[in-house]
Amino acid sequence: MKITEQEFLDLINQHKGILYKVSRMYFDKLDDQQDLFQEIILQMWKSLNSFKGNSEFSSWMYRVALNTAIVFFKKEKRKPDKYTSIKVEPMEPDGYNTKKDQQLVHFYKAVKKLNKIEKALILQYIEGFSGQEIAENLGLSEVNVRVKINRTKSKLQEIVKNQGYEFR
């Protein structure tokens, strides 16, 4: 794809939400999110030639963003987290207002317990990707993707329950 740097950045800006969600799914601390956010932009710029226009730019962007997050190497400084069913105090990830939305906070907190592949699966599922699209993005069979999604959803549900929170 032949576009100028400014056109590329404008295009990224239009789909900024994708980068935000991926960074937010993979890291809890704001610094780490920002590093991943930047890394994704860098990798997109470097691999722009691989976008042939056969699919939506946003789909390609999702794939590069998730792959970058999967292979991104940075040790996250973990906050103390007991993962018990005892009363849970709202734990606020950096830069995040828990009062604003408890449900999202608990969701992101639960997502922390998933591995990198499970995070990619659940995010694509939430975003409404079809089984076939997810399978193509991850390099798995559709059957395998269905099994994994069900398993990940159950795992997520269990984690949220153990946090002492119920989604309604």
């Binding site: 691999s47 390609w60 999967i70 991850l138």
Partner: peptide, 11 residues
């Protein structure tokens, strides 16, 4: 390495 391939292939 082409990072726009599928995740398994990229890994």
């Amino acid at each position: 390495t082409d990072i726009s391939l599928n995740s398994k292939q990229v890994l």
